[in-house]
Amino acid sequence: MATGGRRGAAAAPLLVAVAALLLGAAGHLYPGEVCPGMDIRNNLTRLHELENCSVIEGHLQILLMFKTRPEDFRDLSFPKLIMITDYLLLFRVYGLESLKDLFPNLTVIRGSRLFFNYALVIFEMVHLKELGLYNLMNITRGSVRIEKNNELCYLATIDWSRILDSVEDNYIVLNKDDNEECGDICPGTAKGKTNCPATVINGQFVERCWTHSHCQKVCPTICKSHGCTAEGLCCHSECLGNCSQPDDPTKCVACRNFYLDGRCVETCPPPYYHFQDWRCVNFSFCQDLHHKCKNSRRQGCHQYVIHNNKCIPECPSGYTMNSSNLLCTPCLGPCPKVCHLLEGEKTIDSVTSAQELRGCTVINGSLIINIRGGNNLAAELEANLGLIEEISGYLKIRRSYALVSLSFFRKLRLIRGETLEIGNYSFYALDNQNLRQLWDWSKHNLTITQGKLFFHYNPKLCLSEIHKMEEVSGTKGRQERNDIALKTNGDQASCENELLKFSYIRTSFDKI
């Protein structure tokens, strides 16, 4: 039985969820670079991206490699990797027998973001014989899940209580170790020597080791999670996991709180800001991140802002960003909400898709409305799209047979046209069989910064309504002859009103 693990408890099935942008060198404390989270699957090609990484700022997932063999891993080693800020997950990587050479110096898994409450997941690794993470000293947050690894031993010899604050939620089941077939031998045991430290858990006094050649490092209890030197002297209180010299914040392997210019500090002093819960960055760093993602459509890219001495992905609820200094300031009234469309555009074809934009005031991208039916549609669209004030790209209304009016965009005031449909149009209306009105132009103002209007096959939309939009939106004169079809717009509506004058002759039985 794995020490510190839980057996036999019912657990939810383990679901495996399925960018080499360097964020800056980590400095003297770390020998390499800070790398983003990685999802490495199918083959070993991307694994080489770990070569210079000291910190993975995010998670590391290595999974679904069915053609790899043990010899493929023999020359692979990433000794610079010290810390993973989120979680480490391995799933069905064939041929991998140990992690001792792959990650010989991995010391800390912070667990800032977890995989279903777990910071370390080893699942269905069919050839893994031992973990071998002999320098792993601290899992700051989260638990361990090690399950269905039929060859995995050296679990009962690990004292997880020396690595985690609590072992109650560890789930370590259905491994070879369960069948008591392992016969784990710690260093020196074969020669009758006791080389590794022994600890007591559940009444068992057991030597602690990761492999037959690597003991588990056990520091004096007084050192807590700070770690200790090879001689057993406690590291500085700002260290986490390990250090090369005692009581020196510049000799830590990793930091308990924050890293700044080669030393570990309790908090980031001005003019620095907390970033990702582990390091200090200056304003320029946060500003660069903001600008890199301002026009990016890459998933996970955030326009970072500053709030409460932190550089964070977005302002919290009730705050909006001051564009001059990136500071989050309290909103006066309802907060603006910028919604970034991942692929640059979004099609609204149902109430469900409209709900995804609920509360958005600025759309960074283009909207395509293609709704053919739905219950209580006008009210639903207004509830979900009615706060949109600005669209950076274009607005396209296409084959939306259920629409009679666009009044559900009740606050839309600006279409920038930074991206144009077919390279020309910022407003595009095609084949809307029941569209009769755009907006009530006596109450609604709309500016279209650039781009043209396109109207074709809107049989109940009168040309007068379209011409009014040209005047109000500032697009009059931009359109070419064929942009607004004269014969297919309003051709099934009563669009022309003329005053009919009647004269009559009164007659009676005795007068003409």
Rank of each mutant, 00 (worst) to 15 (best):
L332E: 15
C35T: 00
I185Y: 12
S284L: 10
N149Y: 00
K224N: 03
L240Y: 10
H59G: 09
L63H: 15
L326P: 05
K191Q: 06
K217L: 07
E266W: 15
Q287N: 07
H48P: 09
V206I: 10
L240K: 04
C228K: 01
V218Q: 05
L131V: 15
P316M: 10
H48A: 06
T68H: 07
I82W: 08
N170T: 12
R74L: 03
I109S: 00
P249S: 09
N117A: 11
P270A: 13
C280W: 00
H214I: 08
V253D: 15
Y134T: 15
N43D: 14
N295R: 11
N135A: 09
D75H: 03
L326Y: 02
L155A: 04
N135F: 03
I306T: 04
Q61P: 00
E180Y: 07
V121A: 08
N282E: 15
R145N: 01
S213T: 14
F115T: 07
Q299V: 08
K193R: 05
P271T: 12
D248K: 08
H212K: 14
M125Y: 00
P36R: 12
E314Y: 06
R298I: 07
T45P: 15
C219S: 02
D86T: 01
D72Q: 15
C153W: 00
L289V: 14
D184M: 14
H127Y: 14
F275C: 01
P249A: 11
L240A: 12
W210I: 03
T221A: 15
P334F: 08
L164A: 13
E238L: 08
E180G: 07
C293A: 10
R141N: 02
P104M: 02
C328F: 01
E180S: 11
T250W: 13
T140R: 06
T189Y: 05
R46L: 04
K176Y: 15
N149W: 00
G32K: 04
L332T: 04
R298V: 10
R256M: 14
K80P: 01
C215W: 02
I82R: 07
M38K: 11
T329C: 04
Q276N: 05
N43T: 06
D39N: 04
E180N: 14
E130W: 05
P79F: 08
E71Q: 09
K100F: 06
P270G: 10
S54V: 14
N42D: 06
T189E: 09
C153V: 01
F123G: 01
E231N: 10
I84S: 00
G37F: 06
N149S: 03
R69Q: 06
C209V: 03
T199R: 03
Y30S: 15
H274S: 01
G262H: 10
N242K: 06
H214S: 09
A198E: 14
I122G: 01
R208S: 15
Y171W: 04
A198T: 10
L90A: 11
T140H: 05
K80E: 06
K292W: 14
I139D: 00
V126T: 07
R41F: 05
L152F: 01
P187C: 05
I122P: 03
H236G: 10
R145S: 04
F285E: 13
V200P: 03
G188H: 04
W160I: 02
I62M: 10
L240N: 13
C228M: 01
P70A: 07
I139P: 00
M137A: 11
V305Y: 03
L174N: 08
Q204D: 15
S166G: 04
R162G: 06
R141F: 03
T320I: 07
D86A: 07
G333C: 15
H127R: 06
K67Y: 07
S317A: 03
C315Y: 00
L106A: 00
E314P: 14
I222W: 14
A119V: 06
N52L: 07
G203Q: 13
N295Y: 12
K129E: 09
H307P: 01
D39T: 02
T211N: 03
L29N: 13
Y171H: 15
H307K: 08
C215P: 03
P104E: 02
L289D: 08
L174M: 08
I62S: 00
P316L: 11
L63S: 03
R46C: 10
V108R: 11
R141D: 02
H214Y: 08
H290I: 09
R69T: 07
P316K: 12
R263P: 03
F258T: 04
T85E: 03
T85D: 03
P31F: 08
L81F: 01
L174K: 15
T221E: 15
N257I: 01
A190V: 11
P316N: 05
T250H: 12
Y134M: 10
L50V: 07
Q276V: 13
S296Q: 13
S213V: 06
I306C: 14
E57S: 11
S112P: 00
T68A: 03
G262T: 13
V305M: 13
D169E: 14
F66H: 01
L233H: 14
T107G: 14
L44T: 08
R298H: 08
N135Q: 13
T107W: 02
S237P: 14
I109A: 00
R74H: 15
V93T: 14
N325Q: 13
V108N: 15
C264Y: 01
L99G: 03
N52P: 12
C311A: 03
R298F: 09
D72R: 07
L136P: 01
N117P: 01
L44C: 05
A198C: 07
S296I: 09
C293V: 08
D184I: 05
I122W: 00
C293Q: 02
F205Q: 06
S213Y: 01
A156I: 13
W210T: 02
D184E: 13
P334T: 14
R74T: 08
S296G: 14
P336R: 08
R298S: 11
L88S: 02
S244N: 11
C228F: 01
I56G: 03
L96T: 11
G300E: 07
M38C: 05
K191G: 12
Y87P: 04
R297C: 07
Y118L: 02
F205S: 02
N105Y: 10
C280H: 01
T221R: 15
C235T: 00
A230I: 13
D288H: 03
N105A: 12
A198P: 08
H291E: 09
C268P: 00
L152Q: 03
L114G: 00
N149K: 00
N179D: 05
V55A: 08
N202C: 07
C239W: 00
F103R: 09
Y118K: 02
C252M: 04
G183P: 13
C315S: 01
F285L: 08
C234W: 00
S98P: 00
K129Q: 13
W210A: 01
E314I: 08
C239I: 01
I306R: 02
F258N: 04
V55N: 07
A198K: 11
C235R: 00
F205H: 06
I84H: 00
S323G: 14
C153F: 00
G188C: 06
C315A: 02
C35K: 00
N149A: 01
E207L: 09
T107L: 07
C264K: 00
M137P: 01
C243H: 00
D247I: 15
R41P: 04
C196F: 03
C264F: 00
S317H: 14
E33V: 06
K310D: 13
I139K: 00
R256N: 03
L155F: 02
P269A: 12
E33M: 11
P316H: 13
R297T: 12
N179S: 09
L260H: 15
G241T: 05
E314N: 15
T267Y: 15
E51V: 13
T45A: 06
D169Q: 14
C35N: 00
F275D: 01
F285C: 14
N42S: 12
G192K: 12
E97F: 15
